Simulated assay, not measured.
Amino acid sequence: MPIIEITMIEGRPFEKKKRMVKEVTDAIVASLDAPREAVRIIIREVPAWHFAAAGVVKGEPQ
């Protein structure tokens, strides 16, 4: 059973996440020959101020 964890900055619309889940599932099914029913996806959303790249925090608390 493939379990995929995706961590991203919060704030994307539900419809975009829904599309991402479908497309990631499709990719796992195609690349691993895994049964669609066995694919699990966990989305973890973090506030922008909990994420940094190249030493720069992506946001500040509101």
Rank of each mutant, 00 (worst) to 15 (best):
R40D: 03
A30I: 11
V39K: 03
I41M: 08
V29P: 01
G11M: 09
I43N: 03
A38H: 01
K18E: 00
V29L: 05
K58P: 10
T25D: 06
G55K: 02
E37G: 11
K17P: 13
K18A: 04
R44H: 11
E10C: 02
R40K: 10
P13A: 06
P2R: 00
P47S: 07
K16M: 03
R40N: 10
E45T: 04
V21S: 11
P35N: 14
P2N: 06
P47L: 14
R40F: 03
M8D: 10
I28C: 10
A48Y: 12
I42R: 10
R44W: 13
I28S: 02
I41P: 05
A52L: 15
V56I: 04
P61W: 14
D33R: 05
R19Q: 11
P47R: 04
A34M: 08
H50Q: 06
V21T: 12
E5N: 14
T25E: 06
T25A: 09
T7F: 03
K18R: 10
S31W: 05
E37H: 00
E45I: 08
G11F: 13
K16N: 09
V57P: 08
E15C: 07
L32G: 14
E10I: 02
I42G: 06
R40L: 05
G59L: 03
V56C: 08
V56E: 15
I41S: 14
G55W: 01
R40A: 09
K58H: 08
F51T: 00
G55D: 11
T25F: 10
P61Y: 01
A27D: 12
E5H: 06
D26P: 07
E37T: 07
P47G: 04
R44I: 01
E10V: 01
G59S: 04
E45W: 12
M20R: 09
P47Q: 07
R19E: 13
K18I: 02
W49I: 00
P35R: 09
T7N: 10
T7K: 15
V24L: 15
I3C: 02
R44M: 12
G55M: 05
K17H: 09
I6M: 01
E37F: 03
M20K: 08
P47I: 01
V46M: 11
V24Y: 11
A34C: 11
E15L: 00
A30V: 04
A34P: 02
P35V: 11
V56Q: 10
I9L: 12
M1D: 09
A54Y: 07
R44S: 07
T25V: 13
I42D: 00
V46K: 06
G59N: 09
V29M: 04
E15D: 05
M20I: 02
P2F: 05
Q62E: 14
L32H: 14
V39P: 02
A38S: 14
E10D: 08
A48E: 09
P61R: 00
A30L: 15
H50S: 10
E45Q: 10
I41F: 13
I42V: 09
T25L: 07
W49Y: 12
E60G: 03
R44A: 09
P13H: 03
I4K: 00
E45L: 04
A38M: 14
R44L: 06
D33S: 12
E60Q: 09
R44C: 08
R19L: 00
G55E: 13
F51H: 07
M8I: 05
G55C: 05
R12P: 03
